[in-house]
Amino acid sequence: MPDIQPYLILSATLFVIGAAGVVARRNAIIVFMSIELMLNSVNLSLVAFSAQLGDVTGQILVFFVMTVAAAEAAIGLAIVIALFRRKQTLNLDEINILKW
């Protein structure tokens, strides 16, 4: 039985790095990639737990996360394209129409 604590700490680290990218970067595409990073860190946790518990459900869940991530990437990138067409920029600070 592998000791999963290092895996979980690694997962947390990756998650926080991804989160930092999401909140700090202004380029929409990089923010997007940071989100993928966060998703992957969670996947790592799930696989680690699956291995520890000997239960395949964790891995199945990872499978589903990947499908959703693929769908999300397709939609997200389509939005990015539509946004770029409209605003000629990917700077998130300039995309501020969601306010009063």
């Binding site: 990089i30 940071s34 990073l37």
Partner: peptide, 8 residues
């Protein structure tokens, strides 16, 4: 971790 840092 290194590559993740480079990504962001």
């Amino acid at each position: 971790v290194g590559s993740a840092l480079l990504v962001v």
